[in-house]
Design a protein around this nucleic acid. Structure first.
Lengths: 122, 122
DNA sequence: TAGAAGTATCACCCTTGACTTATATTGGGC
DNA sequence: GCCCAATATAAGTCAAGGGTGATACTTCTA
């Protein structure tokens, strides 16, 4: 399952938000999510499974408890996917000068400004 | 449809990448996506509809053509949703812009980017 | 005005995924 | 050793969404 599919479900997004606050046993997740979304223990368990298998969480056993924690890797990938778009709303971040220069130059040359990535110029 | 659901589809993600390179008539999108994914014109048109209705794109008519362009707002929301998680992979969230600039500079200077954070100081 | 190009919409099929209830599994305490 | 608590898995239902071919709509052009 692709990272964006995983994040497509509001329950899973909420679970990740919970885990961003620190590790948590499955039971606690079930309780909170159960209250907030009105779904059963198996439903939550299945969401935890998806998160686990897609790499969003780590899990360790502690007695009969399963303690879940956030693994940021997939979120980081999502963040990276956003990179080429970021220039649309974060003009001052990163290589703005370069981008503007290229855009102006391209326009001067009669081309459509290229979007793709940032390389620096001489 | 929630932004993350929209992004859950690889075809739609690809269309957004295309539009990040500049506005494009539906026909061009159909051609490129058709080649890359092997799906029909109606399929692409339906994806464009989803993108339009969920705010990811703007559209204007130009004769019989429909010219699509990127609207960054929803992607920006996604980016914001990531904020609370960024501390897991971005050192010094409080100065993110600065950090990115510094990283770029370091790379330009020929330094190998360190895998772990926290090796530089103010 | 007819016809073609460009695009959207319709009606339908099929798969996928998010639930449910019931049950299996495993560890701790008595 | 038993039983309960904590969690996972199984089996089944249902709705949503993505695909297709057919068709409608609109605007240029001959």
């Amino acid at each position: 399952m692709h990272a964006f599919d995983v994040l497509g479900d509001p329950v899973r997004r909420r679970i990740l938000e919970l885990l961003a606050g620190g590790e948590m046993p499955a039971g606690d997740v079930v309780r909170v999510i159960g209250e907030e979304f009105g779904i059963s223990q198996p439903a939550v368990s299945q969401h935890l499974k998806v998160l686990r298998e897609s790499g969003f969480t780590d899990m360790r056993a502690e007695g009969t408890h399963r303690v879940y924690s956030l693994d940021p890797e997939p979120l980081r990938s999502v963040d990276e996917w956003l990179d080429p778009f970021r220039r649309f709303w974060a003009p001052r971040l990163d290589a703005l000068g370069t981008e503007i220069a290229r855009g102006k130059k391209a326009r001067r040359d009669g081309a459509t400004p290229a979007p793709s990535d940032d390389e620096e110029q001489p």
